[in-house]
Simulated assay, not measured.
Amino acid sequence: MRTAVKIFGAVLLIIFLAAMTPEMLTSLATVTADVNIADYTLLEMVVNWAPALLWIGALGAVFFMVFNEVKMRRSGGASTSGGKSKKLR
């Protein structure tokens, strides 16, 4: 049951990030359009790469969560969120 909840949580994380992406892109465009800070070249580079880095990080975290839960389920060990694992006993 806990595995299904964690996998469902991972899917919800992706849906949340997909829903927030347009707002994030609008905010980043507002920052780069400001006259006072538009001259900073490094800021423009960071703003251009930020959405891609957030997506890569979120997908990596989701993959890691799902992989660990499936691995623990297949090995027959206890989940890290529920009790002690066999190795710690």
Rank of each mutant, 00 (worst) to 15 (best):
T32V: 11
K87W: 07
A33F: 05
W49G: 06
Y40C: 05
M20A: 15
I56M: 01
T30V: 08
T30E: 11
E44K: 11
V11W: 12
P22M: 00
A52E: 07
P51C: 10
M20I: 14
V35R: 03
A61S: 04
G76Y: 01
V46W: 06
N48I: 11
A10I: 07
W49N: 12
V35F: 12
G60W: 01
F67C: 04
A38D: 14
V35W: 03
N36L: 04
R2E: 13
V35K: 10
I37F: 01
K86I: 12
L53V: 15
T32M: 06
N48V: 09
R2M: 12
T32E: 14
P22Q: 03
M45N: 09
A38V: 09
S85T: 12
R2D: 15
E23A: 07
M20V: 08
K86M: 10
A58G: 12
L53M: 12
G57C: 10
I7V: 15
A33K: 04
V11F: 09
S81E: 14
L12Q: 12
K86Q: 13
Y40D: 11
M72S: 11
D34C: 00
L42R: 08
D34P: 02
I56L: 00
N48G: 12
G83N: 01
D39G: 14
G76T: 02
G77L: 04
A10W: 03
D34Q: 00
F16L: 08
A18K: 04
L88F: 11
N68K: 02
N68L: 01
V47W: 03
L42H: 08
I7P: 12
A19K: 11
S75D: 12
S79K: 01
S27V: 10
G60T: 06
A38S: 13
S81Y: 03
I37L: 00
A33E: 13
E69S: 13
G83T: 06
L12Y: 04
K86E: 12
S79P: 02
M20E: 11
A50T: 15
L43D: 07
D39E: 15
A52D: 02
R73N: 01
P51N: 10
L88G: 07
A58L: 07
R89Y: 09
F16P: 02
F64C: 10
L53F: 15
T30Y: 09
I15S: 08
S81P: 03
F67I: 08
L42P: 10
L13W: 04
K84R: 12
F63G: 03
A50S: 13
G83D: 05
I56Q: 00
M24C: 10
A78S: 06
I56P: 00
N68M: 01
F63C: 02
A50N: 06
A38P: 11
P51K: 03
A19Q: 05
E44Y: 07
G82W: 07
L25V: 15
T3D: 05
M45D: 11
